[in-house]
């Protein structure tokens, strides 16, 4: 475009537009970017908590070095020791907190497993209350449903079964709730109609687990349908909500033609890939490996 009188007159406007976009960029850089990048790590939540801890602490101790206090706080968040003896609201606030709490449950009580002791819901609840004094009973009860496949809730459970089921229930709480909703919906929608399963599902069924699952075949929903619904449900969850990878869910679901909700959760809790994905507990067989000193210092 040739430089005419018109374009020269337009120049100031262009400059203003340019400045406007630049300011907007800077604004976006500070305002928009801050939530996105820090939200992934929940930085603001930790900073706020650090400051409120600092304010609480300074009432008791007049001589306090603020920099050191904050450094210690963030170091303990980094090391994963920060959820010990904190209130439940804080413990479940972020995925990092949840996984650290699960890890401390394991490291504090893992010797229960070595004695092979079986405990009840109430006993597990009081153990958890030692680490977090307002830990709600209903989370423990829901965990028991996973271990005991939704029946006979007064039965005793082994520590290993409980811990891995607790991990699924506590770490993936939002996902579990969303799945339960989807499952109930599915169950209501097709009470008696048997949906013919696809070839691959039938084959695995026939070859491996037919006999032991005959009784269970009548309950539950079609695995493939359940998986499809779950895929949609997962898409609706917020991007920061933790959920197990669909491929692991798929590998569990493809083992059976029909599945119940708690059956699936039990299977997920026993899946080593999902356990590795969360990364707070060792694999099922090496629960007692390593000395206590190593675990505490790690």
């Amino acid at each position: 475009m040739p430089l005419t009188q018109d374009t020269v007159e337009q120049k100031p406007t262009l400059v203003i537009i340019f400045m406007y976009t630049q300011t907007w960029k800077i604004y976006a850089h500070l305002g928009h970017f801050l939530p996105l990048s820090t939200a992934r790590h929940n930085v603001l939540l930790y900073v706020e908590d650090a400051i409120s801890q600092l304010l609480e602490y300074k009432d008791e101790n007049a001589k306090i070095i603020h920099g050191k206090f904050l450094a210690d706080y963030f170091r303990s968040v980094h090391k994963g020791t920060h959820t010990m003896f904190r209130e439940f609201e804080y413990v479940r606030a972020t995925p990092h907190n949840r996984s650290c709490f699960i890890k401390s449950v394991w490291s504090c009580f893992r010797h229960i497993a070595s004695h092979g002791e079986l405990l009840s819901v109430k006993e597990y609840h009081s153990l958890l209350c030692l680490l977090c004094n307002d830990f709600p009973l209903d989370v423990v009860q829901r965990t028991a449903r996973i271990v005991l496949m939704d029946d006979a809730l007064d039965c005793l459970m082994s520590f290993v079964d409980f811990l891995y089921a607790f991990q699924i229930q506590f770490y993936y709480e939002e996902f579990v709730n969303a799945c339960k909703e989807a499952y109930d919906h599915l169950l209501m929608a097709s009470p008696t109609v048997v949906v013919p399963s696809t070839e691959s599902w039938t084959q695995t069924k026939a070859s491996t687990t037919e006999t032991e699952n005959v009784a269970r075949l009548n309950e539950g929903v079609n695995s493939q349908t359940f998986f499809d619904v779950m895929e949609k449900t997962c898409g609706k969850l917020s991007q920061f909500t933790k959920r197990p990878s669909l491929q692991h869910i798929h590998s569990e679901l493809s083992k059976l033609p029909k599945v119940t909700f708690y059956g699936l959760l039990t299977a997920l809790s026993k899946n080593d890939d999902i356990n590795a994905e969360i990364g707070s507990l060792p694999c099922h067989d090496c629960m007692l490996d390593g000395s206590d000193v190593d675990i505490i210092l790690r």
């Binding site: 603020h66 050191k68 904050l70 170091r75």
Partner: peptide, 22 residues
């Protein structure tokens, strides 16, 4: 923190406040 965008923000903050206090 925003400027440097470290991989582990908590460790970064811990070191940062350590440096301030010393």
């Amino acid at each position: 923190l925003i400027e440097n965008q470290p991989k582990d923000p908590m460790l970064f903050l811990a070191n940062y406040f350590d440096n301030i206090s010393t």
